[in-house]
Design a protein around this nucleic acid. Structure first.
Lengths: 347, 347
DNA sequence: AAGATTTTTGGCAACGTTTGCATTAAACTG
DNA sequence: CAGTTTAATGCAAACGTTGCCAAAAATCTT
């Protein structure tokens, strides 16, 4: 039951291998009728050219490797979805590999990609440590980084405008009258954390609020870490009335913790996230957050990668801007509300 | 800057290709010292054997194809994570493809997998329509279905015990005193929906509750559909006090809709889901649900697939049992609580 | 020390494509 | 109609491995 080769088709069509090869790729070099005949025969026989054999001679695999820390992260999953869509649309297949941020695993992944001769690589939100350096030096395939966590001049990248997004988020809080605004970051030491913090500080400054280091605490980018972080914030003598979270997962954790402590969102505590995960709109209350166009970013990354593969020019870094999505997790702080209520009754 | 081949290594090691080939795969046929030398040279040179060339002759690609409807679904993402982990552990790489449930796309995916000569295929929660039949007939590679939505004797599969899980979920509701229990299903016409419905009915019967068709409504397996479905349930004259949802995403939608209508969970409405997504534990209130070991199932699917590829025997269908995870979205219905309160004050 | 073994190596034909070059057949040219 | 161009085909050499078979080298046997 061996799968048939080009020779089999050639034989039944009574032509040479080359003609079949050409016919199947619709080469103009082959006579219309012969071509049609050959294609019909191939189709009927269910012939499928061997990608391996083909790429052996063309030196192109039409394959891209995608490294993610973990596909279980909804942010990553969406990005990968966009990557796959864009790749598929251009006839490329994607190898997906979890690195789980384990150096050993990263090594194996890179080696595997090398052996498979992927035409290009996309690395998603990696701390890009050991992995990246070794990769760049050995492989000569194009690489694009998506929301990478380290500056890297050597590779192309697409990234979210962290600073702008967090500025908008913090400003939103300030514009509702919050003066004590906390920031729950990610202790991973990521560049995105630093940038979001900086946007937060900038917004504070713009609103004339003095920056208080006690108001910035770190979680781990996931609900659990954020719960603890929020705890720290809440134990402050002068606790914040609004908190900007590094990402929606952190906001989810904060929301959960607040609920546990009997605090209502947003009446007792306003919350803003970052990402706009699919679920965020269904939270109670729906989360106000900064939207990252995740699948779009995946698509962009793929497009610049494909461009690079085709040796076409591509922008070294494309920055995409987040959009503040206002929902219901922010309102004026209690004090301000009390004040305006007083004003109202007085008036 | 062409990547080097086995010949280059052979030349600098002053041995033949075959020896290099053997040495690199640690064949006992090659002298210890020569082997070490060769390996050192290859290592230093950063040589990477070409998977394409290798698989051309061995007729094995050490590659598996994974088809999912969409990787954006957190359930699917977790499954894929398990698949990739298990595959990687055995030196297999995975091609990931979204089908988006579009027949045309499914066709292209299958064709791509054929051309790439994947050693096996895993199909996740597919309605497995057009795709599957054509696939099975043409490709002679092993296939395993994960939570497939159609009976299929031809392929191996791993599936969750839908009936058992929903029985437990419904029973849980009944045991809290609920008599009017709704079911929000998935109108997609999936087998899993039918099975969960059947488990729900069985639990009703076991609890001596008469089945009321008006209490089963259908969503779309996502929050949006569930919101509408819950609306129908709530508009009933004798509305349910507890609802079992087809999956956690539906439960999320129901929770959201309930919140919008000012209903508190679980005081005014008890809710049970199915899946135990990562986020479910962080909802407000934390969702009581039936846990599916998603990454574990992905792992199992991969293991049976790999076994099949190795022509080892493998169980045609492995059924995994869900576990009821009790959290805080269920309590006794208002009526029962009122009754017990009365009893207490009377006693 | 000459066979007889056993290790270790090398040669070479696959595997299934693509592609440059040569060849043949067909269609123009003047 | 011979000579030329053009269109269509075939040949054969890659591409980078593996694995069978033979050859060579080393190690035993008496």
């Amino acid at each position: 039951m061996k799968s048939l080769s080009i020779k089999d088709i050639a034989k039944t069509a009574r032509v040479s291998n080359s003609t079949v090869s050409r016919a199947l790729r619709n080469s103009p070099l082959v006579n219309r009728e012969t071509g049609d005949l050959i294609r019909r025969i191939a189709e009927d026989a269910g012939y499928r050219p061997s990608a391996a054999a083909r790429s052996l001679v063309t030196r192109r695999t039409h394959t891209i490797g995608v490294v993610v820390t973990t596909i279980s992260d909804p942010f990553v999953a969406d990005v990968v979805s966009g990557i796959e869509d864009a790749a598929e649309a251009q006839g490329f297949s994607v190898f997906l590999a979890n690195s789980h941020a384990e150096p050993a695993r990263e090594k194996r992944v890179v080696r595997s990609f090398e052996e498979r001769r992927v035409d290009g690589i996309i690395v998603t939100s990696s701390r890009v440590g050991s992995l990246h350096v070794s990769m760049l030096s050995r492989m000569e395939v194009p690489i694009v980084l998506l929301n990478n966590q380290h500056d890297n001049e050597a590779a192309h990248s697409v990234m979210i405008d962290n600073r702008g997004g967090s500025f908008a988020a913090t400003q939103h809080l300030a514009s509702h009258g919050h003066r004590r605004i906390g920031y729950i970051g990610d202790r991973g030491g990521y560049q995105s954390d630093a940038e979001r913090l900086s946007g937060y500080q900038a917004a504070l400054e713009a609103a004339g609020i003095e920056f208080d280091p006690a108001l910035v605490v770190r979680g781990d980018g996931r609900p659990e870490g954020a719960r603890e972080a929020l705890g720290q914030l809440l134990s402050l003598a002068d606790a914040p009335t609004g908190v900007f979270c590094y990402n929606d997962m952190s906001a989810l954790g904060a929301m959960h913790e607040a609920g546990k402590r009997g605090l209502r969102i947003p009446e007792d505590l306003s919350l803003v996230g970052f990402d706009d995960l699919y679920i965020s709109q269904y939270l109670n209350p729906p989360l106000t957050t900064v939207r990252q166009p995740m699948t779009g970013m995946g698509r962009m990354a793929t497009e610049t990668l494909l461009r690079l593969i085709a040796r076409e020019p591509a922008p070294p870094v494309v920055t995409v801007h987040g959009e503040l999505i206002v929902r219901e997790s922010v309102c004026a702080p209690r004090t301000a509300r009390a004040r305006s209520a007083r004003a109202r009754s007085a008036g």
